[in-house]
Each structure stands twice: as C-alpha cells, then as structure tokens.
Design a binder for these strands. Structure first.
Length: 110
DNA sequence: CTATTGACGACAT
DNA sequence: CATGTCGCCAATA
C-alpha cells in the first residue's frame, strides 16, 4: 500500500487528508511549522487544528509528523514524546539544541 | 446548534 | 529568554 492511496481511502475528514498529503511533500532533513503546513494544505490559520490532526495521525511512520514544529523554533509536542521527536529529527540531520531548532530561521519552509 | 478541546501563533510582560 | 493571555480553527461531545 502506498502512503498516498491509504490516505485517500482512509475514512477521515478532507481537512486531515490534505494535511497529511501536504506533509508528504516535506523532504527528510527539513521541517515545517504547523502554520505553514496548514497553509500548504489549503487551510491558512488552522495551525492548531493541524496539531490535532497530527495527534490522531493514523499513518504513524508513513506520514512524517515529527517534521512539524512550532513557529517559535521549539520542536513542539509529539505523540510518542518530545524526546523521541528530537531524536528522530537529529537523525535526519536537523540541528537542535535544548528543544530548539538551531538554524530555524534558515530552515523554515515557505 | 452550542460548548469544549488541543502536537498552535502573535504579542505583551 | 521564559511565561501568560488571547485569538484561531477544525473536530467532537
């Protein structure tokens, strides 16, 4: 099952589908803010709602929900623990220091 | 339909 | 830099 087909078939809201699909575009080693992702998904301003969607995340490893961070540079929450989230991001090459993205200003996607 | 809830965000203190 | 407040949005009760 490819990620894309499972998502499209999944019994979830259109909002969530778009968010998950948009997140698939974010390459490894790069991060997006909840707000930016919301915008990419076509729901500008729905940063908080995106967070809720990530929390549900029915496609755990497939959808890289750990690449979504806060606009202030902090990594934000994670269903399996912030600690875990940071570890995964570092493994992908994202530089983090004290729960904060070091060169966040340069990393953040439009 | 209204009220509550949260992996957020901008700003003030 | 660390909190607190208030606003925001879609999901859910």
């Amino acid at each position: 099952m490819s990620n894309l087909s499972s998502i499209n078939k999944a019994d979830i809201s259109d909002f969530e589908k778009r968010v998950y699909l948009a997140l698939l575009k974010v390459p490894k080693g790069q991060v997006v803010t909840y707000g930016a992702l919301a915008k990419l998904a076509g729901f500008p301003g729905a940063a908080r709602a995106v967070g809720s969607a990530m929390n549900k995340n029915p496609f755990a490893p497939s959808v890289a929900c750990h690449r979504v961070v806060r606009s202030d540079g902090s990594v934000g929450e994670f269903a399996y623990g912030t600690k875990r989230k940071i570890a995964m991001l570092r493994k992908e090459g994202v530089r983090i220091e004290k729960e904060r993205i070091t060169d966040f200003k340069e990393i953040k996607i439009a």
